[in-house]
């Protein structure tokens, strides 16, 4: 019995001694930290996704208090969190622009055909290394769903060879955007009703040959746009959402029907 009790007492006693000394030292060497940092950390989602541009939720909380970072930068917590953070900081929260990921590709198995049979690792990055993927279009969604594996919110799924985003679940953290080897995913405002669904940078003729649903860079949308919001650069149209009025004229005019209009969004607003 003695062989057990003495070691337990010694190690336990040492632990207790050091614990007390440290408790005492922490009292003497206490660093005054703004208690708002801790409060903000508590209201943040704690996912440490890094979408705000800081190393994690704690780093963002410190940046808000010390460097005056915007209170609405958390795209995961959205308006509810922005409001709480603003409350703690004593400022008014501006509505955070909610953003969602959007897949700029409609190159389904039907629209663009395969140039070879791929039997390697089932991963987009690996596939993209092999002649730019098995689809004829070198900018297409590769369809192995590397983006789905990084999505912490189960918001992306692959249907018919193309990823699609469930905008109800998407928090706009941009994790998928970072891993896509063909960069077909971009973050756009959730309120953006008009969307370009292609990222093919080939010239019209080859774009047309490689995918039935490709932007051929004909600039019809550019001509019809009244607010100078849509432009063709690198043979693919892109919309400047700070100017777009969502009139939908470009979508009507597009000969390849690459520009889509989301109607159901109006009910969400």
């Amino acid at each position: 019995m003695k062989e057990i009790i003495i070691p337990v007492l010694i190690v336990g006693g040492l632990g207790l001694l050091f614990g007390l000394l440290l408790a005492f030292a922490s009292y003497i060497f206490a660093v005054k930290q703004d208690d708002r940092v801790e409060k903000i950390s508590k209201v943040l989602p704690g996912a440490n996704c890094g979408a705000c541009g800081y190393a994690g939720c704690a780093a963002y909380a410190a940046a808000v208090v010390e460097n005056g970072a915007p209170v609405n930068a958390c795209s995961v917590g959205k308006a509810a969190v922005a409001e709480k953070v603003a409350d703690i900081m004593g400022v008014k929260a501006e509505a955070a622009a909610e953003r969602v990921a959007h897949v700029k590709c409609r190159g389904t198995c039907e629209n663009t055909t395969a140039k070879y049979d791929y039997v390697g690792v089932q991963d987009c990055t690996a596939l993209s290394k092999l002649a730019g993927g098995q689809k004829h279009c070198r900018n297409a969604c590769l369809g192995f769903g590397t983006c789905t594996t990084v999505c912490a919110f189960d918001a992306i799924s692959v249907h018919d060879g193309v990823a699609s985003v469930n905008e109800e679940l998407c928090t706009g953290c941009g994790a998928c955007m970072g891993v896509c080897p063909h960069h077909v995913i971009e973050l756009i405002p959730k309120s953006a009703k008009v969307r370009v669904n292609c990222s093919n940078i080939e010239k019209g003729q080859s774009a047309n040959r490689h995918c039935k649903a490709s932007c051929i860079g004909c600039r019809m949308c550019e001509k019809v746009c009244e607010s100078d919001a849509i432009h063709v650069s690198d043979n693919v149209a892109s919309i400047d959402y700070s100017k777009c009025t969502f009139c939908g004229k470009c979508s009507e005019k597009c000969p390849k029907k690459v520009i889509s209009i989301k109607d159901n969004l109006s009910s969400d607003e």
Binding site: I10, G15, F18, L21, L22, V31
Partner: peptide, 21 residues
Amino acid sequence: IAFILIIAGLVQFVEMFVKKS
């Protein structure tokens, strides 16, 4: 185990000291 305990306590102390000063 006893040495690790001592080292851990000391490091914690050094950390507090460096953080403060």
